[in-house]
């Protein structure tokens, strides 16, 4: 297995140019997401989905912007988290979703039967089934490019290095250093998201530096991979199954 590769997306330097979104679609030949004016700031693709694997969020200021430029209008490029414990991968019944040698989570389109189970299993709401096609799609972390020794298309296109690609351990160090610097500059609102291997998904392979609460960016505050509770769920199901069997047995044992 090669080194685990991932993304550190530093939203404090994201200029919302959406080059990442477009580069991803160009490289991966992802279809467009429809032409709908959403009146949600400069965001008209809305969210990650089967047809948008990088998504740039725009968070309008909720009060008049003052002379300070910083933090007035937040922009952040979201992507599949390539979770250490990935809900989508855990529940996939066909093995279409698999973990690559880079530690990333990828759908094999030729295996996916479109059961749709991965969709609600993702605690980040990333993967989705494509209308008309029936299969599930999401960021592959440019598996094909990685195998060819290239960096992912989105990171390559990002002009400000908001998207940093590299070995996960290295990225975590860089992120800590960046966070320290921002804190020293008095930007106490800066925080890392998804970098902690102790979190509910065992740490994300794509993590973020945010300037506000995660939910403001459309991210869950405390995501947990649903399969964490699986053994207990089976135990409750077994109890229910036993109840069903017992009730049935009692019913036939009763008076004729």
């Amino acid at each position: 297995m090669a080194e685990r590769m991932g993304f550190f997306t530093d939203t404090s330097v994201c200029i919302g140019c959406k080059a990442c979104e477009v580069a991803c679609k160009e490289w991966n030949r992802v279809p467009d997401d429809g032409f709908v004016f959403r009146a949600t700031s400069y965001d008209n693709t809305g969210a990650l989905g089967a047809n948008t694997w990088r998504h740039v969020a725009f968070i309008e200021p909720d009060r008049p912007v003052t002379g300070d430029g910083l933090d007035g209008w937040l922009m952040a490029s979201d992507v599949c988290k390539h979770c250490t414990e990935a809900g989508c991968l855990d529940v996939c019944p066909t093995g279409a979703l698999f973990r690559t040698e880079f530690g990333t989570v990828v759908v094999q389109a030729d295996v996916c039967n479109g059961c749709g189970y991965c969709v609600p299993a993702c605690p980040f709401g990333v993967i989705d089934r494509r209308e008309g096609d029936g299969r599930a799609f999401k960021c592959t972390l440019c598996y094909d490019r990685l195998r060819g020794g290239l960096e992912p298309a989105c990171a390559k296109a990002c002009p400000t290095d908001s998207i940093q690609f590299g070995p996960l351990d290295e990225l975590r160090e860089r992120a800590e250093a960046r966070l320290d610097r921002l804190h020293r500059e008095g930007r106490s609102n800066a925080r890392l998201y998804g970098e902690d291997p102790g979190d509910g998904v065992g740490g994300a392979g794509a993590f973020f530096l945010l300037l506000d609460e995660p939910e403001v960016y459309g991210l869950p505050p405390d995501p947990v991979v649903p399969t964490r509770d699986l053994p207990r769920m089976w135990r409750w199901a077994a109890a229910a199954a036993a109840t069903l069997a017992t009730v049935t047995t009692l019913a036939v044992l009763g008076r004729r």
């Binding site: 949600t40 989905g49 968070i59 609600p120 989705d128 403001v216 459309g218």
Partner: peptide, 13 residues
């Protein structure tokens, strides 16, 4: 607070 009131999760398909 939320992102433009939009869902975080995907609806089951």
């Amino acid at each position: 607070r939320s992102y433009h009131g939009q869902p975080i999760l995907k609806r089951p398909v």
